[in-house]
Design a protein around this nucleic acid. Structure first.
Lengths: 213, 213
DNA sequence: AAGAGGTTTTTAGCAGCACTAAAATTTGGA
DNA sequence: TCCAAATTTTAGTGCTGCTAAAAACCTCTT
């Protein structure tokens, strides 16, 4: 991490955007500064200063104001994705391929990367008998079986998926999957959480076969 | 606004959740407190206190930490979907199938539905010659060609995809696709925007062949 | 044009908290 | 068991989050 510019840059820009969004939203709702301030339990002057970028609210105050403005607080803070000219297409022959040390599964990256992207997708090639450890994490995910047969367990409940079958669930539920058959299986995994890391050194779905990293 | 309880309630709960998420994310990335602190330009002790809910970061500091953890700051503040017992699995034989009136494309729903879900996925069966109108909308999307060949145009730039190829881009870019070949094509479409509607009366990707709805 | 009332901005000020450095404790690996 | 790394705890303070009140501005009515 040394030599890297710290992340405390461009904060001024961020607050300017937040300020504008707050004022914009308030005006959409046709509310006065006083109305918002009263409902949020803050002072009129403070709301005014926030909206003009002169003051920055604490998280508590921002949550309060967001509630009054009937918007999810995250929506005020989410940066808009910038379209760019990054590579959007992935060829079957050119998918980035990576594997975990000492593991028998290989992964092929299908999704692209651009600012603000949420989707991640990989093709998982699972040999017979391979099983991932039960895990839970943020986001949601979907597995579409391209070829073969696998068993998926979610919150202790098992289901067998064949070619063309799919499963889609919140990743917050404890889940694992394995290839119970005697043939390789191919799965298209898509999720909203970067569980395979852009740096494919340690994928989050750890292998049971793997001793220690 | 009178008589309404002010919005400054339950802030304590929110900060607890934020704290947990920050620690969870840091561990996912396998980073130490020190690494995050150094990169964010904050002290180790402060990060520790934030993660344990003892201290609350300012917006500036939260933005800094979020950047280090490579996550959109809004994602830390958005409330979590509740897991439920809805159907998560879709069988190939039982996919909900729907089509647009007078259209030749059929769509098969692959994704499930549960509170807070973001992912939507359908299999599109496109006959030869079929073309969708250029369109742009929020979110991002990915098309994985299961079978056949299609042309995809993004911001005027065309690319041909064959079986196993994929394309993933922000849907804010003007895009359209069509099956230029003389054989049917099958595409697994996945996106973060409900362009096909849960109510399949008017899919967002309008057909050029379709006159008016 | 003047006046009244409502809305927003400005100003002065301070309590407390955002954040630190350093010490203490815990953890993990050899 | 030892030691280095990681994390937590502690003591402390600069500064800012936020206030109340004054000033300025705006709108509407007469």
């Amino acid at each position: 991490m040394s030599g890297q510019e710290t992340a405390k840059s461009k904060d001024v820009e961020d607050h300017g955007a937040l300020a504008m969004r707050l004022r914009e939203r308030r005006r959409e709702l046709g509310l006065t500064l006083k109305a918002v301030a009263d409902a949020a339990g803050l002072s009129v002057g403070f709301i005014s200063q926030i909206e003009r970028g002169i003051a920055v609210p604490s998280l508590s105050s921002l949550v309060s104001v967001s509630r009054v403005l009937d918007v999810n607080v995250g929506d005020f803070l989410t940066s808009q994705p910038q379209p760019d000219e990054n590579q959007v297409r992935t060829r079957q022959a050119n998918r980035p391929v990576f594997a975990v040390s000492e593991s028998t599964v290989t992964y092929e990256r299908v999704s692209s990367s651009f600012p603000g992207h949420v989707l991640r997708s990989v093709i998982m090639n699972e040999p017979p008998g391979h099983r991932s450890e039960p895990i839970a994490h943020e986001g949601e995910e979907m597995m579409f079986v391209l070829d073969g047969t696998i068993t998926v367990e979610i919150d202790g409940e098992r289901t067998i998926l064949g070619t063309g079958d799919s499963v889609h669930f919140p990743s917050t539920r404890v889940h694992s999957s394995w290839n119970h058959s005697d043939k390789p299986a191919t799965i298209l995994w898509t999720g909203t959480m970067d569980v395979f890391c852009e740096e494919p050194a340690t994928p989050f779905h750890k292998d049971k076969n793997q001793k220690a990293e």
